[in-house]
Structures are given as C-alpha cells and as structure tokens.
Design a protein around this nucleic acid. Structure first.
Lengths: 81, 81
DNA sequence: CACAATTTGTTCGTATGTATT
DNA sequence: TAATACATACGAACAAATTGT
C-alpha cells in the first residue's frame, strides 16, 4: 500500500506537497536531524517532476523547517516538531 | 580529428549521445569487454555536463549494451557487437 | 597501512524551454 | 499575461569503490 497521493485540484501541487511533508514533520513521522527522502525519491513517490519537489522543499526551507546541504540532502530542523 | 559532435535541435542531447555510443559499439569502434571512455572524458569530448553523459550511459545500461562497475568504469557487453 | 588519483553514483541548486491553465 | 508543471541541461558538492604509490 503505497501512499500515492491524490492531489486536490485548484491547489498547486508544490504547495500540497509542502503541506504533506510539513505534516509528516509535525507529527514526528520525520524526526528532527533526520533526512527527508531525496528529491528523486519524492519525485517518484508522488509522481511529480523534480522541479515541483524542489519548489515544495524551498517553501519548507524558507519557513526554516528544514536545512539543505548540497551534495548531502535536506534535513529536518530541530524547531520543527 | 576530434569527433566534436553537432547536436541536432529538438532531440535531447543525452539521447543523441546514447545513439552515438550505441553506433560506435555496433560498428566495432568500441569492442566488447572494452571500457567506454570515462564520464569525465566523454563530458569534455562532447562538451556536455557530467549529468548528461550519465543519463546517456544509463540508457545503454538499461538496454543491456554496457555494464558498469563503480570505481572501475563502464564496459561494453558481449552481446553488443 | 596510509594516501592520493580516478571512476561511478548520488545529492541539491539554478536556468531555460515548452505546454497548459 | 501570469502561474503552474514538466523536461532538459549545466554546475557543484559529497560519497564510495578501485587502483597505484
């Protein structure tokens, strides 16, 4: 049973995806200091383009919920749970 | 005389590059069990990014024409000539 | 054993072009 | 026109395997 998301119409996918990830961090499904799935992985999981995932992650980064290190990955901030 | 490729428009470079390498294997310019030029070398030769070369090689690998050993290189399969 | 060079793989960032709405 | 979404392409950093010194 894969969590294949159904995206609601009239709301941009990248905003919905940011919401999904935000919820997973808030609920502790993704813990502080732990890495998010890679862009490529999220792209495949949700069936969206890399660029769309990058846009979603950028939102979370702007909110300070995650920190990104190029070449390593994106990690959940400590102030996110 | 370097084979500086002119890439046609409207066809992705990585697909054209895969075609070039495929032709070289089919014609015997690159023999079975022999290594392809390294990614860095192909990148310089054809004036494209590493990622583009990797995408081209991935196509050939998916087709079974080459096999890759990380740290060693990519080698032409026996069923490719 | 340690170290560096080479090689592939993986990661994220950015920019551009195209199509759709 | 603008925003969204996808595909392509380049740039850069990090990791791991291999090889040679």
């Amino acid at each position: 049973m894969v969590a294949m998301a159904e995206f609601a119409p009239d709301v941009p996918v990248y905003i919905q995806l940011a919401g999904i990830l935000r919820d997973q961090m808030a609920s502790g499904q993704i813990q502080p200091r732990q890495p998010l799935p890679s862009i490529a992985h999220l792209s495949q999981t949700y069936g969206v383009a890399d660029q769309t995932v990058k846009k979603a992650i950028r939102i979370l980064r702007d909110e300070g919920l995650v920190h990104t290190w190029p070449g390593k990955g994106t990690f959940v901030s400590e102030q996110s749970g």
